[in-house]
């Protein structure tokens, strides 16, 4: 199975993905093999069900939101390219990437893009604002039935108050960045990929 999987991936594709995501050649082929084994429909794309079949993800309180991050608006399939693009947000920031050519555009694993990934977990309707209602829904996913509505409501109110600077009772992305400016996002939103 494995040998077939990697031969389906063309060398040009690997090069392009490498450029776009910063993953190394061997990481790409290994992740392709993983992609292939998740792809139960064997159609070269993953569906939401393919993700939900991973038990550890299925028990993750935010599992559905994380899965959603792989799917562009209105689509229910993600190909390998898209899969890698989302995973690339979690590559650690390497020293030599910090002062790269400024014209190259922002790498997927930059601090801002990592924060954007987290922001979008809350932004259910993708309107670039986290409303009180959205925050409540995400909180509910995280705590399940264990906390009362009032208590959760007061947590949401307090969180929005702390973050909201322009008084629209929502958290915009720039407000989100501001609140989390002291957090070591680069490290906490990174996975240690080997080789």
């Amino acid at each position: 199975m494995g040998s077939r999987a990697s031969s389906l991936l063309r060398e040009e594709d690997i090069e392009e993905i490498k450029k776009e995501t910063g993953f190394s050649h061997s990481q790409i082929t290994r992740l392709y093999s993983r992609f292939h084994s998740l792809d139960k429909g064997e159609n070269g794309a993953l569906s939401r069900e393919d993700f939900q079949r991973i038990p550890e993800l299925a028990i993750n309180p935010l599992g559905d939101r994380i899965i959603n991050a792989f799917f562009p608006e209105g689509e229910d399939q993600v190909n390998f390219r898209g899969f890698m693009r989302t995973l690339a947000h979690f590559r650690p920031v390497e020293d030599n990437e910090k002062n790269k050519d400024p014209n190259a555009g922002e790498p997927l694993n930059s601090r801002t893009n990592k924060l954007l990934f987290a922001f979008r977990l809350y932004d259910l309707d993708r309107d670039d604002k986290i409303s009180r209602d959205e925050l409540l829904q995400v909180l509910r996913m995280m705590v399940g039935v264990n906390i009362s509505d009032e208590q959760l409501g007061s947590i949401a109110d307090r969180t929005i108050q702390e973050a909201d600077t322009n008084g629209d009772m929502c958290i915009s992305f720039s407000e989100f960045i501001k609140v989390l400016e002291k957090v070591d996002v680069e490290q906490k939103m990174s996975i240690r990929f080997l080789h």
């Binding site: 998740l38 935010l62 995973l87 987290a118 973050a163 906490k188």
Partner: peptide, 26 residues
């Protein structure tokens, strides 16, 4: 009113992505 910060989702995101890349079971 309870201890929650917006950055708590970082933990769940990282865990989730880790399990997508490599999981114990499948």
């Amino acid at each position: 009113g309870g201890d929650f910060t917006l950055s708590d989702v970082f933990y769940f995101s990282r865990k989730g992505i880790e399990s997508i890349v490599e999981d114990e079971v499948t």
